[in-house]
């Protein structure tokens, strides 16, 4: 079974003993042992994946790394965050997903307006099953718990991923003052309700909604 561990906060080390992981294409920085790297088309989800990813624009170039030894992954010195999944679903932007165990299934799902406001398109990547996944974020991600009595509002540009049973909807503080040139710059938020965890990065991507 592949073992994920962090080496520093920006490099992921994976111990492999004959099994495989799926990783962002080109994210390997070093390896020790015997490894094979195979480019997977369509995010490694087979023909259906190729078609959905092409249609949805949630493209993900993934390679399968198989072998014996240690493989190190990193992506533009971004912070790496480990997530252990035990049957639940992780929703993450394809660009923030660094590596997943081969036992985890990846797919795409419709996110609605949130995706559009982030400039990521209307779809997001899901990771499902039991095993570990590694996310990258600009700055170490802060993990915030959402519970029924504590809904959470997140700036679309700072959202990285979430797990659990969460409903999300777009919240807008746009009023007549926004159009009178007195925009607050915080007019759009994603509101999460339900039970789950949200990963937020201490940095904001430039988003369409962020300027309003």
């Amino acid at each position: 079974m592949a073992l994920f561990r962090l080496q520093g906060s920006r490099v992921l080390a994976v111990d492999l003993s004959g099994d495989a992981v799926k990783a962002k294409n080109g994210a390997m920085v070093a390896y020790d042992g015997k490894m094979t790297f195979k480019r997977l088309t369509g995010g490694g989800d087979g023909l259906r994946g190729i078609v959905t990813r092409r249609i949805t624009g949630e493209s993900m170039t993934v390679m399968e790394v198989r072998g014996h030894g240690v493989c190190w992954f990193a992506d533009r010195a971004s912070e790496v965050n480990l997530v252990r999944l035990t049957g639940e679903k992780l929703y993450v932007e394809a660009s923030n997903l660094l590596c997943t165990e081969a036992t985890l299934r990846t797919g795409t799902t419709f996110t609605g307006l949130r995706g559009a406001s982030e400039g990521h398109g209307l779809f997001t990547t899901t990771v499902e099953g039991t095993g570990q996944a590694a996310l990258v974020s600009d700055g170490p991600a802060v993990v915030l718990r959402v519970s029924p009595q504590f809904p959470l509002q997140v700036d679309p540009g700072a959202y990285v991923a979430h797990t659990g049973n969460l409903r999300q909807h777009f919240q807008s503080g746009v009023n007549w003052r926004t159009f009178a040139g007195e925009a607050s710059g915080e007019a759009f938020q994603i509101r999460f309700e339900g039970d789950g965890l949200v990963y937020v990065q201490p940095s904001e991507r430039t988003t369409v909604g962020g300027q309003v």
Partner: peptide
């Protein structure tokens, strides 16, 4: 400063500076 809020719990409104 504009755009530096990343997440919040609770009831918070954001007002632009101006008349109000």
């Amino acid at each position: 400063q504009r755009g530096k809020m990343v997440a919040y719990y609770g009831r918070i409104d954001f007002h632009g500076l101006g008349h109000g």
